[in-house]
């Protein structure tokens, strides 16, 4: 482990803000992308059901 404690890990030396900002936004965007594409797929299925029923 490159850090001695969790606190030090979060601080990342004096660069904590930048590292977590970059990771937060990046991971957030990736998750949002995955959710959006899966939602689009589910939406298609749901629209198919609607078209089938009416």
């Amino acid at each position: 482990m490159a850090f001695d404690s969790l606190g030090e890990f979060l601080a990342m030396g004096r660069h904590g803000l930048y590292v977590w900002l970059a990771y937060g936004v990046s991971v957030g965007s990736v998750v949002a992308l995955v959710v959006a594409i899966r939602a689009r797929n589910a939406n298609i299925w749901q629209r198919l059901d609607e078209e089938e029923s009416d």
Binding site: M1, M12, G13, H15, V19, A22, Y23
Partner: peptide, 20 residues
Amino acid sequence: LAFAPEDYQQGNSFRIIYVH
């Protein structure tokens, strides 16, 4: 983030490389 060694010049900010 947690296990790779720190960069002697840039310190921990270089860890952004793993996503960039």
